[in-house]
């Protein structure tokens, strides 16, 4: 934990040295959420019934979708970005010459992005609540737990992307495909039951579908853990399967990178 904390601290100090970026990072949230509020309010008469099973408030529905979507973007995109940047700069090589394990180093480097996103998510939710979204604050811990499971179910895509980065120096279309499909078919801006039936099978193969449904029911309706257990069970299956696959791929990619000497080829 000391090492992860040190890496988070260093990332924070670097992040804090870009003051304008910090201001715009939070400022952009406000700029985004206010128009969403007005659009959602305008659509409420039509969408209220559609989202009845997930809170009934369309603004709250979209707000929670935005929070989850922000996290899956981090889960999928951060690790390949870290690998790409640190290989190019030579910092990965420097980290690997210390007695710290690669998983520890990567966890430390990623943690900052997740903590930063968490801070942004809190601001987003509070702003949403101020604008009128009904949030079940009493279920915050359970909601954070579900959010963590959503992240864990998408982290394997990030690990796969990092493996591709080690092998080919590019992730190809993987992150965009995963994020795009999840955005359109995972129920971020509308519930999955309104999408055409022939796309339902694709939607049911997306972890976000289950995670987001559970998250909304907890955050917006205040449902207990037992009510969302089936969705979380499916999410867990995704996590186990995808984690095994991605860890295998990454181990192989790292071994190949050490064999071909590409860990520090700028």
């Amino acid at each position: 934990m000391h090492k992860i904390f040190a890496l988070v601290r260093a990332s924070w100090l670097v992040g804090a040295s870009y003051r304008m970026a910090i201001i715009t990072s939070f400022g952009s949230l406000i700029v985004t959420v206010v128009p969403v509020f007005y659009i959602a309010r305008a659509l409420q008469p039509m969408m209220g019934k559609v989202v009845q099973g997930q809170g009934g408030d369309f603004f709250g529905f979209v707000l929670v979708g935005m929070v989850a979507f922000m996290f899956i973007g981090i889960a999928v995109g951060t690790l390949p970005g870290i690998i790409s940047g640190s290989v190019s700069s030579g910092t990965l090589e420097a980290y690997l010459t210390t007695p710290s394990s690669l998983p520890t180093v990567l966890a430390g480097l990623m943690s900052y992005d997740f903590l930063w996103s968490f801070a942004r998510a809190v601001v987003l939710v509070i702003t949403g609540a101020i604008l009128g979204a009904h949030i079940a604050w009493g279920k915050s811990l359970l909601a954070i737990g579900i959010l963590a499971l959503i992240v864990l179910s998408y982290l394997p895509f990030g690990i796969l992307g990092a493996s591709l980065m080690l092998w080919f120096r590019t992730t190809g279309p993987l992150p965009k495909a995963v994020i795009g499909l999840s955005g359109f078919l995972g129920g971020v801006y509308y519930p999955t039951h309104v999408i055409p039936s022939w796309l339902h099978s694709v939607s049911s193969a997306i972890p976000l579908t289950y995670g987001l449904r559970a998250l909304r029911r907890v955050m917006l309706e205040g449902k207990p853990l037992s009510a969302v257990a089936p969705d979380l069970g499916i999410l867990m299956l995704f996590i186990v399967g995808l984690c095994a696959l991605s860890v295998l791929a990454f181990s192989r990619a790292l071994h190949d990178a050490k064999r071909t000497g590409s860990l520090a080829q700028y």
């Binding site: 904390f5 260093a10 100090l13 040295s17 870009y18 910092t91 420097a94 007695p99 520090a264």
Partner: peptide
């Protein structure tokens, strides 16, 4: 590693603190 492997947005002390932690 060349000088790019240093963290250019940190001070020398912070660079060393980070790697001290990585060295336990």
């Amino acid at each position: 590693a060349d000088e790019r492997s240093l963290n250019w947005r940190l001070s020398a002390r912070e660079n060393l603190r980070l790697f001290a932690a990585l060295h336990n």
